[in-house]
Computed example of a mutant assay.
Amino acid sequence: MTVNLAELARRFQGKVRGDADVVIEGVASLQTAGPRDIAYISDRKYLSQLAGTKAGAVILAETDVAHYSGSALIVANPHLCFAQVADLLHPTPGFRPGVHPTAVVSTAAKVAATAWIGPHAVVEADAMIGEGVYIGAGCYVGAHAMIGSKTRLVAHVVIGERCVAGNDCLFHPGAVIGSDGFGFAKDGEQWQKVPQLGRVVIGDKVEVGANTTVDRGALNDTVIGDGVKLDNQIQIAHNVRIGENTAIAACVGIAGSTIIGKRCTLGGQAGVTGHLEIVDDVHVTAGSLVTSSITQPGVYSSSLKAEPVEKWRRNAARLHHLDEIVQRLAKLEERLQQHFEEQKN
C-alpha cells in the first residue's frame, strides 16, 4: 500500500510541514529509512539523528519540528501515530477460510465458516470457534473452549479445555492458556495434587506473547481483562486477576490469587508474590519484587543495582550482621537519651 503525507495527516489528526504529496510506502528507523519511508521521534535524545536521516518524512511533536528541515507529520503523540501508520501500511496478512487436510477437528466442534484451521491443528469436541478466527499450525483447542471472533492463534498455541479467549485477541507461538495451576497438598513426605477445576477467561483485544503461560484457576477462574498486553515468557499462576489495559513485560512472574488493577505496568523480570492486591494505575519498575499489597497508585521499585563484585560481597557480608547492628544502635540511642536526661537534671 502507498499513501501520501496529506492522507496520513487526515487519517491521524496531524498536520503537514513540507511536501504534502510525498509518497510513503513503509515505516523504518531514522538510520535505515529511505525516501519512501516514514520514521518518527518520541524521545528527544534522538534529535541529533534527524540531520542524517534519508526518510521521506518524519513524525514529530510540535516542540521538535525546529530540529528538522525535511517533510514532517506533526502530531501530539508521535509514538502512537507511528504505530497507527505502521498498522495501515503493514496490515496482518489475510487468509482463506477452511480446514487444512491435516487438521483434526471434532465433528462436535462448532467452527464458523469464516475461520481457518491450519495444518496439524486440533480442535476438540464442543469447542466454539468464532467468525474470522485464525488457528495456525500445530495449535490445540480443548473441549468446550471458546475462541471469539477475529482472534488469531499464530502457531503451536494451546487453549485448554473450557477456557475462553475473547474477540480480536492475538496469541503468539508457544503460548499456553489453561495449564494446571501449581496446587499440591502435603501428605507426609509426599505431595497430593489438588485438581485445578477453574478456567482461564480472557477478555477482548488481549495480546499474549511467545511462551507465556496462564494457569487455570483451582476453583475460581483466572481472569485477564480487556486490552491487557502480555510480553514473552511470563508466568501467571492460578486465580490471578488482571485488570483492563494493564501491560506486563517479559519474564514477569505472578504468584497465585494476586489481583492486579487496571492500567498498571510491570517491568521485565519483576516478581509478584501471591495473595496480594495491587490497585489501579501502579507502575512497577523492571527487576522489582512486590511482596505486599500496593494500596496507592504510583511508581514502585525494590531492586538493587549491579555493582563491582568485590563491593557487593562486602555489602552482602555486612547484611548478615544487619539485625545485630540495629540492636546495638538502638541500645546506643537509649544510652545517649539517658545521658541527655541526666544532663538536664
Rank of each mutant, 00 (worst) to 15 (best):
L153S: 00
G118E: 01
V122G: 03
E310Y: 12
I294Q: 12
R96T: 15
N4G: 08
A155Y: 04
D187L: 04
A143W: 05
A20W: 02
M1L: 09
A125M: 01
S292M: 11
A175H: 01
V194G: 08
V200M: 08
R318H: 11
E244F: 06
P91Y: 14
I74Q: 02
G34D: 05
P91V: 04
Q31D: 14
I159C: 02
V228C: 06
L73C: 11
V228T: 06
E307H: 13
T285Y: 09
V141K: 01
P195T: 15
F95A: 06
E25W: 05
E244Q: 14
R36Q: 07
H283A: 06
G98N: 13
E161G: 05
C264Q: 00
L322K: 05
C163S: 01
V284Y: 03
V284W: 01
G274T: 05
L73G: 12
G18P: 08
P195D: 15
V3K: 09
S48C: 11
E324T: 09
T246R: 01
S303P: 08
G118M: 06
G181C: 07
H321F: 07
L60E: 06
F340H: 10
N77W: 03
S257P: 03
K205A: 13
N211K: 08
A9M: 10
V290Q: 02
G271F: 01
D221M: 02
G178Q: 00
V309F: 14
G178Y: 00
D323Q: 14
K186H: 13
S302V: 11
P91T: 04
L80G: 11
V133C: 09
V299N: 13
G298Y: 01
H339I: 15
A76K: 15
Y46S: 13
L60P: 05
S69C: 07
A330D: 14
D231S: 08
G268E: 12
E131S: 15
L5T: 01
G18H: 11
A66H: 14
R216Y: 02
Q296F: 00
V104C: 15
T291L: 03
S301D: 06
T222V: 01
A86H: 07
I24E: 00
V104E: 12
E333V: 04
V133L: 07
G118H: 02
R199K: 15
L197G: 10
E244S: 10
A20E: 14
Q192P: 09
T63L: 06
H120C: 13
T213V: 10
N232Q: 11
R199Q: 14
V27C: 03
Q327E: 14
G174H: 00
G178M: 04
A210P: 06
N239M: 06
I159K: 00
G198H: 06
G142Y: 04
H238L: 05
A155E: 07
T246E: 04
V214S: 10
G174T: 01
L304C: 08
A20I: 00
S42G: 07
E307G: 14
M1I: 12
A247F: 00
T2M: 12
T273D: 07
A218S: 14
I234H: 05
F340D: 14
S48R: 10
R152K: 13
V133D: 03
G56R: 07
G253T: 12
A83N: 12
D126I: 06
L266G: 00
M146A: 12
